[in-house]
Design a protein around this nucleic acid. Structure first.
Lengths: 157, 157
DNA sequence: TTTTCATGTAACCTATCATGTTACATATAG
DNA sequence: CTATATGTAACATGATAGGTTACATGAAAA
């Protein structure tokens, strides 16, 4: 890999999973999702468990069990998912000491916190405006474009 | 600690260091800075080295050596420091696969990238507007406020 | 009811990475 | 020359996201 992994890729993972689930009508098992996500079924259960506890998905055990989306795609936002995942830290940049004695460090921390808090607020606002339905539409559009490109190529050849 | 450490606290560190340096007229040694920052002189050299290579600070070896700020405080922005540090990842949230085969995952990644890129742009813009002089002023103001609070307490007692 | 298939979860392993540390080379003022 | 400073390589440490194993629990099918 060129770069390196972000600290938390669960949001990306659950989005990926949810969109696959949205395409199918039957529930998907952790096993199936794990294959989609290139990961382990236990990791899927662990991560999807956050969404279950938030009421975003439903899981059924036993035969014909698996994971289902609980509500309408248009009603689930990125912000909902972020919240469900426990509102993990957004930024990889921050200060080391939470409550430093040094007045200079306090001042630096306060200034940085102010800037980062404002930006985080914007991010959360944006995330609250993007729904799963939007992403599904995005996907459909891209897929269509890709197909028409294919056709153009076929015509070229 | 309650939360956990952010992945990169170097921006906070160099700000802390630079403000201490700004208060003094003489150069400060890595040893002195390390005491201020509660860290190791080698870590200071390593981190400040980025600023040296970017021309933000100057280091002198030998007797009476140490670190000095190269230019005016009003000319150095948070963005400059961020750039000097190699423009590290701003977000702790991201996707796992840089170039996934799965079309769904591609779509998810693109949507997330779009949102995060916009927010990152705002952050960098904000950082470009905050100078070391601003932070020094902030500090002076806070320090004054704190002193007057002290005086009030003394009057109360 | 027994079997099979699914989730739920605890407990551990592993890779990665920021930071800390040791050791030593290099430069410079006195 | 010596003392004092940075420069840097090499390695240690600690935290953590994600992977893995093992097993309990529950539900449908046989």
């Amino acid at each position: 890999m060129i770069g390196y992994m972000k600290r938390d890729s669960r949001l990306s993972s659950v989005l990926h999973a949810l969109l696959h689930m949205a395409e199918l009508d039957d529930p998907m098992t952790s096993e199936q999702l794990a294959r989609c996500l290139n990961t382990n079924p236990v990791v899927v259960r662990r991560t999807m468990g956050f969404l279950r506890r938030a009421g975003i998905v439903v899981s059924d055990r036993g035969h014909a069990g698996g994971w289902r989306i609980a509500s309408d795609l248009a009603a689930i936002t990125l912000r909902d998912l972020h919240n469900a995942l426990g509102e993990p830290d957004v930024f990889a940049i921050g200060h080391r000491h939470e409550a430093p004695d040094c007045l200079v460090e306090q001042s630096v921390n306060a200034a940085l916190d102010e800037t980062f808090a404002e930006v985080q607020a914007l991010l959360l606002k944006r995330m609250a405006h993007v729904t799963l339905a939007d992403l599904a539409d995005d996907f459909a559009r891209r897929h269509t474009v890709r197909n028409s490109h294919h056709k153009e190529h076929e015509q070229d050849a």
